[in-house]
Computed example of a mutant assay.
Amino acid sequence: MNMLTNYENAIKNLPLGRILTKKELLTETFLLERSGQVEIYYAPHNAYQNPNAKIVIVGICPGWTQTEIAFRTARQGLAENWPQEEILKACKKEARFAGTMRTNLIHMLDEIGLQDILALESCAQLFTCVDGLLHTTSLLPYPVFVRGKNYTGYNPSMRQPLLKKYLDAFFTAELNVYREPVLLIPLGKVVEEEAQRIIGELGRTNITCLRGLPHPSGANARRLPQMRENGADLAGQVRRFGQKACPGQVHA
């Protein structure tokens, strides 16, 4: 869903070289649709897809932090006349999971042995020197706010008509790109349930959805107990994916 061309002039009118505010971005200019207290805004975050990825990490939707970084990155790219594909790729790379969430996620993926399957020292390398193996995305392509706050996947349900429209159109198209074995890593129960539903409806046997991984948010107090409970099963799922994906070829 690349709509950057439609918003280039509006993005060029944003301030350059500083953090942007909600007052500047959550405006009628960037509003895509509204249904009751649910608002969906454009952001240049999920337009780039890595078709060669072997690992696909999926969240619910871009949050405010990702939204702001993506817009700021696009503003810089337009000011410096980067090619559009380079802008979109930079928006994705700069705005994807960072800070404590990334640290926790890497630790959990290393704990269940994903780095061994990919012949890496650590899954931290997925975000740096071997990021060609990684694609990060979300069920919903654009930032969603409910009463001005980040949408969490609940209240309303992901099955709310407006949300489901974006979910089914965007995420189905994302998954249909992949033909080789892919490990899909959902962040949270809602993402896991919806990803499994769509994978099943598409009949995509090449896509393995990791089941039972705790959400890596630092606010998830159950993360460590859940890892102790589910760690062995998660490691088994990763090993079975490795057998399907042929680890030598994955690393190549």
Rank of each mutant, 00 (worst) to 15 (best):
F170S: 02
K149V: 14
I207A: 07
N176G: 14
G77A: 00
A235C: 04
M3Y: 15
C246V: 11
V56W: 02
L133K: 15
Q66E: 15
P156G: 00
S35L: 06
Q76G: 06
G77C: 10
Y166P: 00
Y41V: 04
G200R: 00
E174W: 05
Y151I: 02
G188T: 08
V146K: 04
E194T: 04
M108T: 03
P214Y: 08
E85W: 01
M158A: 06
Q84L: 13
L109H: 07
G77Q: 08
N9K: 15
T205V: 05
I106S: 13
Q66L: 04
S157Y: 03
M108N: 11
I55V: 14
K165T: 10
K165S: 12
E192K: 10
V182R: 07
Q49L: 15
A119G: 01
L213W: 06
T136S: 13
L163S: 01
F127M: 05
A90P: 08
R223C: 08
R179K: 15
P143V: 06
F145K: 14
L175N: 05
F241R: 13
L4M: 12
P181E: 09
L32N: 11
L26I: 06
R34Y: 02
I207L: 15
I87F: 06
M227Y: 11
R102P: 05
I112W: 01
T21A: 00
L183W: 07
R96K: 11
E193C: 05
L88S: 03
L175E: 09
E94H: 13
M227W: 09
Q125I: 04
V38N: 05
A79T: 07
S35W: 10
R18G: 03
M101C: 11
T67E: 02
Y42I: 10
L31Y: 04
N230R: 13
V38F: 03
F71M: 10
C61P: 03
R211K: 15
L126H: 12
T172E: 14
T172K: 07
Q115I: 01
K23M: 02
P161W: 10
Q237N: 08
Y41L: 02
Y42C: 01
D110H: 09
N2L: 09
I117R: 04
Y142A: 05
L202K: 14
Q160G: 00
D116G: 00
H135R: 05
F97A: 14
L109P: 12
V130W: 09
N46E: 14
K189E: 13
K22Q: 12
Q76W: 11
R75N: 11
T73N: 03
K164H: 11
S35Q: 11
T172Q: 08
L14I: 04
F30Y: 05
R75W: 03
G212L: 10
P214T: 09
